[in-house]
């Protein structure tokens, strides 16, 4: 476990000196602020109840594209630079390398996510703590559940990205493959909309079950924390991290 901590620290620090990590953070925060702004404007005009989770819904979708940017480096670069060879000869287990790197990425993600907490705060400033610019108060339940959900969701996307980073020495390929995979997993939600002549109902149902979106948009974000959804995201993380470990191990046999 000591090695996990050492690797975790280095990976997290690496994000703070890496231009791409700053760009990702900047892009996510910019896009979220725009969607938050327009949503708030709409609701004020229509006198609707403010939505504290709007930032999160946008966040989830953007992670399809940005998680690969955060993870594509992690193992592909080490393999190319030859540092992975040294890593393999240290008294460190493969599982510790994988876990340290994953936790580093997840921690950086958590930092970006934490910055978006400013939006629920803004809404509360406008409602609960002001002279009712908006008619009704924000519902805090979905915000708490939503943040838990998006946190788990992000972990799952990062685990998928890490797996593809272990698969190849080429960062671009790793990033592209994980982006494509995440996109398909995201769209799995829409499988049910296709006519049954194209896709069988069973298959559509199966796709929806493994859809990244379905376990989020119909539960956490409306304030429901269901065990099956928590287990789903944890499961994706566990499976992907295990697959990453096996992939690393297979490098030793090549």
């Amino acid at each position: 476990m000591r090695s996990v901590w050492v690797i975790f620290k280095r990976e997290l620090a690496q994000y703070f000196v890496s231009p791409i990590a700053y760009l990702v953070a900047f892009a996510i925060l910019l896009l979220i602020s725009l969607s938050f702004n327009s949503d708030l404007e709409q609701r004020v005009l229509n006198a609707q109840r403010p939505n504290g989770t709007i930032a999160l819904t946008a966040f989830a979708f953007f992670m399809i594209f940005f998680a690969p940017l955060l993870t594509m480096r992690l193992l592909a670069e080490e393999a190319r630079e030859g540092t992975l060879e040294l890593m393999f000869t240290l008294p460190v287990r493969d599982s510790e390398i994988v876990l340290g790197k994953f936790l580093g990425a997840w921690a950086y993600y958590t930092v970006i996510l934490a910055l978006t907490l400013v939006y629920p705060v803004i809404i509360m400033m406008l409602t609960t703590f002001s002279d009712a610019l908006l008619h009704s108060e924000m519902d805090i339940g979905p915000v708490i559940a939503g943040y838990l959900g998006i946190w788990l969701f992000g972990g799952a996307t990062l685990a998928v990205g890490l797996f593809f980073s272990a698969l190849t020495e080429n960062q671009i390929i790793a990033g592209f493959l994980s982006m494509a995979t995440l996109f398909i997993l995201w769209l799995g939600d829409l499988a049910g909309l296709l006519p049954s002549s194209i896709i069988s109902t069973e298959l559509a149902r199966a796709l929806r079950v493994i859809s990244l979106q379905a376990h989020y948009s119909t539960s956490f974000v409306i304030g429901v924390i269901r065990m099956e959804d928590v287990v789903f995201y944890m499961g994706i993380m566990a499976v992907m991290l295990y697959a990453t470990m096996l992939t690393l191990e297979s490098r030793r046999w090549r």
């Binding site: 000591r2 090695s3 050492v6 690797i7 280095r10 690496q14 000196v17 890496s18 630079e81 030859g82 540092t83 992975l84 060879e85 040294l86 890593m87 000869t89 240290l90 008294p91 460190v92």
Partner: peptide, 27 residues
């Protein structure tokens, strides 16, 4: 102690930071 043929370095770390990282991984 192992030095592979391609010297395994992290370009973004400092010289002492790199050696410290390796020392930490070796406990």
């Amino acid at each position: 102690g192992y030095l592979p043929e391609t010297v395994p370095l992290y370009p973004d770390m400092t010289v002492s930071g790199y050696v410290k990282f390796m020392a930490e991984l070796r406990g």
